[in-house]
């Protein structure tokens, strides 16, 4: 079996300018903080970031925005990071806002081989602009298309050497869906254990989705 455990330096060779990257986490809880720091250090630029939010200044994926490495962000909420709004107003950052539940399902659809999802969320609002609608029964739905990425960077609390992931408490958030919807999936592990040492009942992300595992430098 392929050894998936690599160093942060090795994994950074795979993360290159212009990539579309999904970043797990909710206000940085469950975010791959060591990989984010390494992207900033390497200065990988022209990124498209897909993430629930852009965190708060100085923490997690907000550092990518602050370092001006991001050209576009697809997200549900930027209100906690004034720098994202500032770059959006200046025109240097393209911000595509998507309702949070729709964002999760668009990513899930991509990973699950679906051609999109039908959601009542956003009907009649600006979130519907440019999107097709369909009536089923008496209710109108938006057609939200699948959302994929080149790379997903995730954080797992315990990861076995096969890539099976256990997420503690509210660190799950977008990590499990993102694991399914990128060409290259990298998980930053707080703790790495031998294959099979996570109770199969507690595995949330099956190891088949994971390409590389790195050890987290962060205790945050």
């Amino acid at each position: 079996m392929k050894n998936k455990i690599v160093t942060l330096d090795e994994v950074m060779e795979k993360i290159t300018d212009g990539a579309t990257i999904m970043v797990g986490g909710f206000l940085s809880v469950g975010s791959p903080l060591s990989i984010i720091d390494a992207i900033v250090e390497k200065g990988v630029k022209d990124l498209t970031i897909i993430s629930n939010d852009t965190s708060i200044p100085g923490v997690g994926n907000s550092k990518l925005i602050a370092a001006k490495l991001v050209k576009k962000v697809i997200t549900s909420h930027i209100g906690t990071n004034p720098e994202t709004g500032k770059q959006m107003m200046e025109g240097s950052l393209d911000v595509q806002l998507v309702p949070q539940g729709s964002l999760a399902e668009m990513i899930r659809a991509a990973g699950a081989g679906l051609g999109g999802v039908l959601t009542p969320t956003g009907v009649g609002t600006e979130a519907a602009e440019g999107k097709q609608t369909i009536v089923i029964g008496n209710r109108k739905y938006l057609i939200e298309l699948p959302l994929r990425a080149d790379i997903a960077i995730l954080r797992g609390t315990i990861v076995d050497t096969f890539g099976n992931i256990f997420y503690n408490k509210t660190t799950q958030n977008f990590n499990p869906v993102m694991a399914t919807a990128a060409d290259l999936v990298i998980v930053e592990a707080e703790k790495i254990v031998k294959e099979g040492d996570i109770d199969p009942n507690k595995v949330k992300t099956p190891g088949i989705f994971v390409d590389y595992i790195i050890r987290s430098n962060s205790n945050e």
């Binding site: 997200t75 549900s76 930027i78 709004g85 969320t121 600006e126």
Partner: peptide
Amino acid sequence: HKVPGKMIPGMGGAMDLATG
């Protein structure tokens, strides 16, 4: 969720909650 030109934080979960 929005005051055009002044407050554009994004809808977060508000549209889903209000709809669902």
